[in-house]
Design a protein around this nucleic acid. Sequence first.
DNA 1: ACAGCATATCAGCATATGCTTATATATACA
DNA 2: TGTATATATAAGCATATGCTGATATGCTGT
Lengths: 102, 102
Amino acid sequence: MVLKLLGDKTRLAMMKLLEKNECCVCEFVAIFGISQSAISQHLRKLRDVGLVKENRKGQWIFYSLNKGSDMHGLVMKILELVPSQEERIAELEKQGLRVSCG
Amino acid sequence: MVLKLLGDKTRLAMMKLLEKNECCVCEFVAIFGISQSAISQHLRKLRDVGLVKENRKGQWIFYSLNKGSDMHGLVMKILELVPSQEERIAELEKQGLRVSCG
DNA sequence: ACAGCATATCAGCATATGCTTATATATACA
DNA sequence: TGTATATATAAGCATATGCTGATATGCTGT
């Protein structure tokens, strides 16, 4: 269930980041400071219910919000109320950890 | 956190019922078929974060949505997308289990 | 083919969660 | 005061959840 998935603070922050950015697994790892395995498992849950979609670019897999999801409207309303996470992206850039291949 | 609380199907259904009705603990017990204790614990969680408020009427305590909650707007948006639970109230009435003390 | 990096999956563990039963508290009424 | 009803709290249990470390898979470049 979508609300249960968004009830986890890490997943909610991931979704907020994906609202404005495409991100790959290793970026989330750098941002959240948890294992690559944990990030991958969160993304799988989000993908399994169709909230995000993946887009492979070479060795990276970029995730983005799935705007075609049934729940997309609700998700956007919820994300509106979540504080911006853009500083985390800025921090990544500053550390030179942003993966942009595009 | 609000989303986590609403991520539980019982609590979400309780909130949907409270959208249109004031309900007491024993009504929820009849509706959901779980113990009085379990219902009471769900209500406590909802009350602790301010989503619902209580209103004692004699030996009953009636719960209702707390419209003054910071999260009330979000909650209403979410509840719009939850299927109506009004048949459950109708069922209660039919069984003569509705507690109305006006 | 091989090494290196990114990602996914598996197995196991600690904690959180939702439930139950038993008990305590609060109100109503005889 | 005593009994019945409604609700709250405490203790314990089974399952779910989120994490880690180890391993598998997939792509890249040599």
